[in-house]
Each structure stands twice: as C-alpha cells, then as structure tokens.
Design a protein around this nucleic acid. Structure first.
Length: 569
RNA sequence: CGGGGUGUAGCUCAGUUUGGCCAGAGCGCCUGGUUUGGGACCAGGAAGUCGCAGGUUCAAGUCCUGUCACCCCGACCA
C-alpha cells in the first residue's frame, strides 16, 4: 500500500486490486474494477434509456475551433487538455461535451417538430487538473455520463430536467447509495437552475448546507443566510486612526490591536469587467464569489490586482476600509453581518493605518445609489435560514443536472424554426454523472476494517465459492456448486487458488463480495455448505444440494431490493 | 503556478546528516519439507545502472549543478 493513498476508497481500490495508477490522476482498471465500472454504466444506461434519452458517442478529441467559438478555451484555461496534430491543427481533449452535442444539434435540427431531443454518451473525459488527488475522486481522466437536451420552450426543458432529476434518483438508489440533492449554482456552465446529487461522507470535497432532515439543501456557494440581528448599540468614541505598520492581514491586525476577527470589517476590492467595486464582510467571514456573481450577472468578477487596489484606496494592499470609500469605487457591497455590527475596526485607506470605532451608518453610508446591503458571504456554523439552523456536512458530488439556456445554442447556431416561422436558438439542459465517483463513494460509504462491502447491484461478483480445505472431494464439490451458480445466472467466482483458508477469507472480504459460500471439512462431512453475507457476522449452514438455489434466491432478493424503482420517490 | 517533500529489490521503506568495508530489512517471488477455517513455519535461493544527465573526489546512494517523475499544503474546481 503506497503511503500516497490518503482516503479509504483510494486505499481499498488499490488493495482490493480494482485499479493501478498509471500516472498522476490516471488509473488502469483491472478486471475486478472494470466489472464494477460496467455494472454502474449499465445501471446509468438503463435509467437514461427509460427516461427517454438516446445514447451516442462523441469523440474525445475535438477540434479546438468549436471551443473557441463558445469561449471555453479561455473559461477552462489550463485545465483544458490540448494538443497539436501533425497537420498543425489544435485539438481539445473533451472535459465535457456541450460543444460536440450542440454542433450535432446545429446540423440536424431545423424545426420545432424535431424537438425535444435528449442525447447522452458514456465516455472518457479529460481534465488537466492542477492537482489530481483522492484517487479516482479527482483524476485527470475519468468516465462520465453526460446528456444534453434540446427544447423549443421552457416548459419542455423543465419537463426533461425533471425526468433527468428523477432518473438520477433511480440511478443512485439502484447503486445502493444514500444521497442528498442540493441546490447549486451553475458556475462556469452559465444558465440557471441546477441541482447536485451528493453522497454525504467525511472525505467529500464539497460542503453541503442543509436544514432539518435535509428538507432543503444547498452547496456552500448557494446556501442563503439570514441577516444577523443588529448588535445592540454601545457607546463608542470618535473614529481613531491607529498606526499599524506592516499589519495587513486579518490575523496580524487581531494580534496587533488585540481584537477578535469578528470585530473587523474586511474590505475586498474586486473588478467586474472594467468596473472596480468593494465588498465588505466581517473579518471572520469569507466572501462568496458566486453570490457576488449573481449581483453582477454576465460580468466577469475577479479580485482586483495590486495596482487597481492601490489606485482605488490610496493605500497598499491590506489597508482598504469603508470610510471615505464612496466615490472611489463604482459600487460598495455590504454584507448583512457588517451592517449589523455596532462598531468595528477597518482599514484606513492609508498605508500602515487602521481606524477603530467605525460605526456602520455613522462613519460610512449604508444606502445610496452605489451602495447595497446584501448576502455576499459563505454560510458558517451558527447561521440560520428563515429562522432554521443551518447544518453542515461534507459530500462527494456524483451528479448534476442543469438548465443551460441558450449559451451554447446561440454560439454554435443550434437553431430551429418555430411554429410562428421565427428562427430561435434551442433551449438546452445538460446532465452529468461521474461513474468513477459512484464507485469511490460507494466504498467510502460501505466498508469496514476488512475491506469493501458492495451493494449487490454494483458488486464485481455476486457470490464467491471458497473451498477451505485441500481435499479432492471438497474441490470437486466447490466446482460443482460454482457451475450450478453460473447456470442459475449468478455471477460467481471460484477461489480455487492453492492457499490457506484464512488468506481466501481475507481476500473475499477485502474485495467485498456480498455472498461467500464456504466448503470446509466439517460442514462438508455433514452435507452442508456455509453461507455468509459480507454485511453480516453470522453464517448459516445450507444443504449442499440446495446451496445454488438458495444463493440464487438471495442474490435476486438483494438485487430486487435495490432495483425496486417503484419504491423510489 | 507558489510552498514543502520523496525517488534505493516486484511492493513498503531504512541507509544520505558526518563520502570509505560487499547496498540492507520486512513483505512478495522461486525450490524443498512440515502445515491447512481468518493473511502458517523451517531451510535454501533469485532479485537493485540507488529516478536520469553532468560535475567534484583517490573514492559518490551520500556532496554540487541541471533535469524528470511522483506526493503533500494552498490559490477555488465536476
């Protein structure tokens, strides 16, 4: 076991022989891992087809031209894998396939009568991640199911969106996964309306914010917070400038002035395209850039560079403050939590100086043309939404559905003639599922100190026959049962390796096969086999003659339990 | 891309500080024997251009320069 495998799913995938690393963020799937992959893919495929989507394949290697047209060469930046071919053409290694599918639509769709259409593929994706990690959870190459739907109107898009939403619930339920559906921002993809399907577990990279029994859940970018109650007014002295040489960071200011972070007003200078604006949050809070994006719809938001900051505030970086800032920047966003402060410490807009006794409303205005009090920070422990306490959990994002709108159809001219004879861009939705992430999160969810415990539906094999003694008769009987299982459609494995019983048991446990059938000297003499479920402690004795039938029955029962899609909301 | 770290047997790693015997251990592998229900034991054995390229030196795994790969932390990504 290499020390580099830090999370349990990564460790177990290596130890159980599901995969091997080829290079940073790329993995070879070994036979057992490949079987799991195919199982998951098959479930996804069945549910997509059931929901009316049709499978295609779009090349992984695509002309960069298409990506230039949609502007995503710049959007993706370094993450986009590219190469030049022998003719000097630039190519893109597809990290997702809006371009490919929209191109297809632009060629094939002429009339509203052809709509809606929902196409998908299950294919390798490539992203040149700045830092691959967590095994298969953030890798450079991965398997993704991605679907793209095309519509003439919003209602139709919404219907397909909900069809996909429900198909996803079935997919994850059938894979045996517990999941949380969170409202999400659409990020780089643009558009509006999105949900993420998230598997709650300690090693997740995402933060899920929810209330009550997950009645409502959001990702951190989207989670709303109630404004904090106005702090009771206190007697404060006049504004006082204090010399704080080289004390620019929140931490440094706190140490220097002996105050707590929540007593500071943090002033961040941003650029929205060409316009400079300021965002005020409390010292212990973080600006949520997605929330800021929502205020400057359609503009490119980024932290201002040093030069811009110096020009706007008249001070070095680290000494910006709200007092006297009106007029120097285009806009000032004040987080509710800042507005609620009775008094605080802020930068003085003067290098090496801060001001104390800053009272919001007294020392800087909280309304006006260019001033907006709003929610622009990340939720933190203790926050509420509509009076209910926000709860936090980590999760792995395994799927996302979103309404894309016309971003791609406009740029790639995927248009149709509507009933009224006008030419319109298709409305689009797109829907992704991370196949490898399903596998990793299943392991994160279902394992014990011995190894993986697969849900029956995605287990590489359903049952394993383990002869636990070297006697000829036992080996023969094991082989016989193995054949009977295959005849009954059970995906069985026969551990006929010339090894001690303990080794075989450990390996079976590690690999996580749901049902183990053991033939040992004692029970065999009594005409019995031992059946043990990976998820249970105790074993049961079954007549040798009835073993295959009994196992097949159990396998079917366990499959039905997970595949019973009628029971799913 | 910035900061830190690692590269030595199939795998996991020691040895590098302070240059000097023959480059080591555990696991795995091979042979023979004893074992055989939760990762057995004994005996013997094979196995390494010390990441790569230069350099310093009587002498380099160890020092210097360059280079590559991989890992960890962070910039915010599916």
């Amino acid at each position: 076991m290499p020390a580099e495998a830090e999370i349990i799913s990564h460790q177990l995938m290596l130890r159980a022989g599901l995969m091997r690393k080829l290079a940073s963020g790329t993995y070879i799937y070994l036979p057992a891992g490949q079987r799991i992959l195919l199982k998951v893919i098959q479930i996804v495929r069945e549910e997509m087809n059931r929901a009316g989507a049709q499978e295609c394949t779009v090349p992984i290697c695509q002309p960069m031209e298409l990506w230039q047209k949609t502007g995503r060469v710049d959007d993706y930046g370094q993450t986009l894998g590219t190469f030049k071919d022998r003719h000097g053409r630039m190519n893109v290694l597809s990290p997702t396939a809006e371009e490919g599918f929209t191109y297809l639509a632009s060629q094939e769709i002429q009339s509203y009568k052809q709509l809606p259409v929902n196409l998908y593929q299950i294919n390798t994706k490539y992203r040149d991640e700045f830092r691959p990690r967590f095994g298969v959870l953030r890798s450079r190459e991965f398997m993704m199911k991605d679907a793209y739907s095309f519509h003439a109107d919003q209602e139709c898009l919404h219907k397909t969106y909900m069809d996909m939403y429900n198909a996803y619930k079935r997919v994850f339920s059938r894979c045996g996964l517990e999941y949380v559906i969170v409202e999400a921002e659409t990020g780089e993809m643009g558009g509006s309306g999105s949900h993420q399907f998230t598997i709650p577990c300690a090693n997740g990279e995402d933060v899920i914010v929810y209330i009550d029994q997950q009645d409502q859940a959001w990702n951190l970018e989207k989670a709303p917070v109630d404004p904090l109650p106005k702090q009771p007014a206190v007697k404060v002295g006049p504004l006082t400038e204090v010399h704080t040489p080289n004390v620019g960071s929140i931490e440094a200011v706190c140490g220097f002035l002996k105050v707590k972070p929540q007593e500071l007003i943090k002033t961040l200078i941003y650029k929205a395209d060409a316009e400079v604006f300021a965002a005020l949050v409390r010292g212990d809070h973080e600006v949520n850039q997605e929330k800021v994006n929502q205020i400057f719809v359609g503009q490119h938001i980024d932290l201002a560079d040093e030069e811009t900051i110096v020009k706007a505030t008249g001070a070095a970086v680290g000494f910006a403050g709200p007092v006297g800032l009106v007029g120097r920047v285009g806009k000032i966003l004040i987080d509710h939590a800042v507005a609620a402060m009775a008094v605080g410490v802020a930068g003085a807009n003067k290098t090496d100086y801060h001001i104390t006794n800053v009272v919001p409303g007294r020392d800087f205005p909280m309304d006006g043309q260019t001033i907006q009090v709003c929610d622009i920070r990340n939720a933190v422990q203790g926050d509420t939404y509509e009076g209910k306490t926000l709860l936090f959990k980590r999760g792995i994002e395994v799927g996302q559905v979103f309404k894309l709108g016309t971003k791609y159809s406009v740029k790639l001219e995927a248009r149709f003639l509507d009933e009224d004879g006008s030419r319109k861009p298709c409305l689009m939705g797109c829907y992704g599922i991370g196949i490898n992430r399903i596998i990793a999160s299943a392991i994160e969810l279902f394992h014990d100190e011995w190894g993986i415990i697969w849900p029956m539906t995605i287990s590489p094999w359903q049952a394993i026959v383990t002869p636990a003694a070297p006697e000829k008769e036992i080996l023969t009987a094991a082989e016989e049962i193995y054949r009977q299982l295959l005849d009954r459609g059970v995906e069985a494995l026969l551990d006929d390796r010339d090894l001690r019983a303990g080794v075989k048991f450990k390996d079976a446990d590690l690999l996580g096969i749901p049902i183990r059938i053991t033939l040992g000297t004692k029970s065999f003499a009594g005409g019995k086999t031992e059946i043990k479920f990976r998820s249970a402690k105790e074993k049961q004795l079954v007549d040798i003659a009835k073993t295959a039938d009994y196992t097949a029955e159990q396998v079917k029962k366990m499959l039905d339990q997970l595949n019973d899609v009628e029971a799913i909301g």
